[in-house]
Design a protein around this nucleic acid. Structure first.
Length: 220
DNA sequence: GCCAACGTTGGC
DNA sequence: GCCAACGTTGGC
C-alpha cells in the first residue's frame, strides 16, 4: 500500500532531453561536497552521508489549484507520522535521496514562508523507490517525459522524530555561516548557503552535530 | 559541447 | 511582489 500522504517539495520541471541521469550532476555534487563524512571503501572520491536537510513549505500556496502546504506539523499529524517525500524534480536532489539509507536522520526545513528555518528532525524509514506522482496527470509534478519502464524520479519515506527544542531560523544559521566562513567553523560550507536552491541536501556529521548543539544555545 | 535565453526557487 | 541566483533547455 502506498504511503499515507503526499509531501511537498518545491521541485519543478527539469526535463533533460534524455532520461539519463546526468552524471555531471552527480559529479558536481561530489565536487561540491567538500566536507566529506566518510569515504566508501572502493571509491575514495564518493562521500557517504547519513545526515540530510529536506525543504518543504509550511504555509499554503496554490499551484494548479493544489495546496503545496506541508510543514513538520503536517507530517506529525499523519498516521505513523510517516509520509513519502514525493515531487522532487531535480536530479541533484533526487540523487541525494537515492543515497539515503534507512535510519538516516534529516532536518525538516521550512522554506518559502514567514520564518524559514529548521523546524524538526525526521528519520528515513524507506529507501528510494519510484515516485508514482510522475505518472499521474492530475498531479502537479506529473512528468510526461518519464516512462513507466524507466522512471525518472524517486522518493523516500520519512518519519517524524521530534520538533527542534527551539526553531533554528535561517537568519541565525546565516550569521553562523558568515562567521564560520571568515574565522572557520562547521557551517562554512553548508549547502543551504552554497547551494541555496537545492531542496534535498547532505550534511556532514560536523554540520549536523553543530546544528543540534544550537538547540541548547541562546539565539544568536 | 558551448552558451544565451528561459523559468523557477526562495529569501527579502 | 521583487528579483538575484542558478539549473535547464535548445539552437548552433
Amino acid at each position: 500500500m502506498p504511503p499515507k500522504k503526499r509531501t511537498r517539495v518545491n521541485e519543478r520541471l527539469a526535463k533533460p532531453g534524455k532520461d539519463e541521469d546526468s552524471a555531471k550532476e552527480a559529479v558536481g555534487a561530489k565536487k561540491k561536497a567538500t566536507g566529506v563524512t566518510k569515504e566508501s571503501s572502493s571509491t575514495p572520491s564518493t562521500p557517504e552521508y547519513c545526515h540530510w536537510l529536506m525543504k518543504s513549505e509550511p504555509e499554503s500556496r496554490f499551484e494548479n489549484g493544489i495546496d503545496m502546504k506541508f510543514g513538520v506539523e503536517d507530517l506529525k499529524a499523519l498516521p505513523d507520522q510517516t509520509s513519502c517525500w514525493d515531487g522532487v524534480r531535480n536530479y541533484q536532489a533526487r540523487n541525494f535521496m537515492r543515497q539515503m539509507k534507512e535510519g538516516d536522520l534529516a532536518f525538516f526545513y521550512h522554506s518559502n514562508c514567514k520564518e524559514p528555518g529548521i523546524a524538526g528532525v525526521m528519520k528515513i524509514v524507506k529507501e528510494a523507490y519510484v515516485d508514482h506522482t510522475q505518472f499521474d496527470k492530475k498531479d502537479v509534478h506529473f512528468d510526461a517525459s518519464s516512462k513507466a519502464d524507466n522512471p525518472k524520479w524517486s522518493m523516500v519515506d520519512v518519519q517524524y522524530q521530534r520538533m527542534m527544542k527551539r526553531f533554528l531560523p535561517l537568519s541565525e544559521l546565516k550569521k553562523y555561516h558568515l562567521q564560520h566562513r571568515t574565522k572557520g567553523g562547521p557551517l562554512k560550507d553548508m549547502a543551504l548557503f552554497t547551494r541555496a536552491r537545492l531542496s534535498v541536501q547532505p550534511l556532514t556529521s560536523e554540520e549536523f552535530d553543530f546544528l543540534l548543539s544550537l538547540e541548547d544555545e541562546e539565539p544568536l
